[in-house]
Design a protein around this nucleic acid. Sequence first.
DNA 1: TGTTAGCACTCTATCACCTCGAGTGCTAAC
DNA 2: GTTAGCACTCGAGGTGATAGAGTGCTAACA
Lengths: 343, 343
Amino acid sequence: MEMDSRKEKILEAVVLDYIETAEPVGSRTISKKYDLGVSSATIRNEMADLEEMGLIEQPHTSAGRIPSEAGYRYYVDYLMNKSDIQEEAKQLITTTIRNKREQVGEVLRDSMKMLAEVTNCTTVMVLDDKHGTTLKLLQLLPVEPGKALMVIIMEDDKIENRFLEIPESMTKEDLDLVSLMINQNLRGLKVDDWQRHILENIFQNLQHQRQVVDCALEMLSSILGIQNADKKIYLEGGLNMLSQPEFKDVTKVKSLLQSLEQQEVLTQLMEADNAAGITVKIGAETGVDQVKDCSVIVADYKVKGETIGKVGLIGPTRMDYATAVSMLNTMALTLEEAYQEIE
Amino acid sequence: MEMDSRKEKILEAVVLDYIETAEPVGSRTISKKYDLGVSSATIRNEMADLEEMGLIEQPHTSAGRIPSEAGYRYYVDYLMNKSDIQEEAKQLITTTIRNKREQVGEVLRDSMKMLAEVTNCTTVMVLDDKHGTTLKLLQLLPVEPGKALMVIIMEDDKIENRFLEIPESMTKEDLDLVSLMINQNLRGLKVDDWQRHILENIFQNLQHQRQVVDCALEMLSSILGIQNADKKIYLEGGLNMLSQPEFKDVTKVKSLLQSLEQQEVLTQLMEADNAAGITVKIGAETGVDQVKDCSVIVADYKVKGETIGKVGLIGPTRMDYATAVSMLNTMALTLEEAYQEIE
DNA sequence: TGTTAGCACTCTATCACCTCGAGTGCTAAC
DNA sequence: GTTAGCACTCGAGGTGATAGAGTGCTAACA
């Protein structure tokens, strides 16, 4: 069976109408509402074909059709009108992000909330934090006998604090010396770039304070390194989906929301095809059983070709893909611009 | 109409059975299940009285009785057996809190989660942060020309970082001097205790670095002071309640969960009668319309007579008050002990 | 006088049954 | 290839009928 333009129009009509009404779509509805110039009987024939092709399905014999996951996939890949962004929405995102640049966290939260509300979905944000994990400044401060505070400033002015146990005999001057040596040797380097001989150099020069250096380096590498792996994930608007009719069953809702609270699940959902800017996963494609009635759209944003974060939308399979994709796209682009200006 | 011991027993039976089964309780059920030594007919008479007194009510004519809010109130105030803590649960709390003291945040989260799971309620924690807001150590670090980092360590080892703009001419030695002066004069003092003459003393000695001192002091006072007012609120187990039959309606769930996301609502709910250690608010007593089908139990924990935080449980009106109260009590006590040891 | 057995009554939940309408597939005519 | 028409299917929603749980009242009992 071949796809032709009329079949495509009918499939599109089914998808759009089902997105709008959440009710199975009948042939008569299509012939009346969408001006295809053919009668409902013809549409019925075509719909039988589409069903045979696996693009739409019938909940029961005497009901209309709803899109199958494959149908959504076809719609997203070939039919969806990607450019019909509401200009106002675009404006909204841009201004929300730009208005108060000062506290990045706040702004992100606001934009996420806004996005979630407009699309009636849940927004997820992953900050990769890969960039800027080089060391700018490290300082050990004596707090009380036997205890020091390690202050680490990253290249992007993020700050980390860790307490450190030190020998009671150690003085402020010793700590300053250790700080100085570490700074001199490791400033501007990523953890991957630490060379064996650099570390040996530090240890040799600070034989005396060996114990502290050892401990400090270990902490430092864990901060620079692990922070890398341990991405920060934010979630906003987790309750928005509840207004959708597909979530009228509380037990479903509970298991869905519970799985969205798990980092692993979110990470899995937000895994994206790095080649494409935007990834759409429909239903089972998400790979997580508890969210098999949902779809996920992920956009990543890059600075200098490197992905530094991802924004995602989670909603019911019957979500408004066109709007969601364009909103997400705008969001990612605006974020990219914002980051570029900071650099 | 007077309350007598038999009426009390019947009321207690109604409350307990309704808590257990979530179904209206009939007279026959009580006479069979709870050994009161009288027939169901007698119980019927008494129940009619209890209804007249407003302590129980009938959903419809031919149904059993359920406790009214006043009934719960009577139960909580006069009938509830406060001492029947499950020893195992107590043990659970104690070990959860004590086992890994290192990261206070982690431990609190864990205990809250545990409490929420055991009671099938939502746990709320308010940290007043009033205690320990005295200064332990302040250090200004040069980051780059014109920019310094202020590291502040509180008495309870909480750490705050703030960037500071400084004159480009300022050296590391200048900053050290400023840090030293501030430490000498303000260590161990709360913001309320700053005396005019102490501050003048600092300014006089550091005429030269006046600008930086000024700025640093302002930041310091905002950290020590504002942090005071701006309590931290944590919520855990927000989804636990969903397994209860009273929350099978999604729209209710949504509005409930949404209001629990609002700081103001939580603050309002966690307002407690400071005289009593534990406050129980039933239904409308919470004062928040969206949670009128819920009850809230709040326990505060004190160190040296001063409230430093509160733990709360939010659950359906039909919650197991006895268990909840004793669990919460144990939790508060254990926290008090833990804090006292830290001091 | 308090307690109890018995009985008529009330109300809900449940199930079978029916009808209505939306939607289909098929066929024959255009 | 398209369409009108028709028989058919199936679920949603309404209607009784029934069972069962629970009540209130009354009269008898200790």
